[in-house]
Amino acid sequence: MNQARAAILQRLRQGRPADFAVPESDFTVVRQRNWSLEERIERFQQKIESVQGQVHRVAEDHWIPVLIRLLAEHQINNLLLSENKAPAQALREQWHEDLPSLLSYQQPLEAWKETLFNQVDAALTSCRGGIAETGSLILWPDADEPRLMSLVPPVHFVLLQAKQIYATFDEVLREQAWVEQGLPTNALLISGPSKTADIEQTLAYGVHGPKALIVLLLE
């Protein structure tokens, strides 16, 4: 279809109006945010809770007992988590037999699709930070925490460092230098559990993705 490519580009080049006036892009309106860390945390929490996300503020060294309690509350029998990331390793070390079994995403999706879709109750992932303005989590899935961990199991737990809550997505792009370092295969903003309002504008959660999104906010 190189012919189509050439024809389209030629039409666009030849047809482009000569005096194409482009106004200045003034980004001030999305950049003026001078929120303190506490303000960012509160705003993040308020925004994500407004869309049914759950936030538990916990001390950095106390999240595992909280997670254990939450797993019990949600009657979770198994938890999918990373093999290599430090928090996951810490958790594996403290684990014992009476607790839900721990699973890892060791093989490619195709090798265990049925199990992943039908038998995994919950997943725990890390994230690259949060966004206060929209109550969003920033995830860059990778080989250790593949994409479907945050999508297929009905409950998704996320570890978020409080000090990594940025004001806006715009700030994230600059502070984390996304353009300079290049984007991963898949990058995500996740803001709450999966939802739909397609039936008479009535909200229902967990339509295709997780029914519950639980953030452990580490302070």
């Binding site: 080989a143 994409r147 295969t185 803001s191 939802k195």
Partner: peptide
Amino acid sequence: ATGQHITTYFNMVSAPRQADEKDG
């Protein structure tokens, strides 16, 4: 569109599955 401050997912796709990746 719907009066949401953001949608649940903002999904950014830049490449197919890489050699070491397990899904996608």
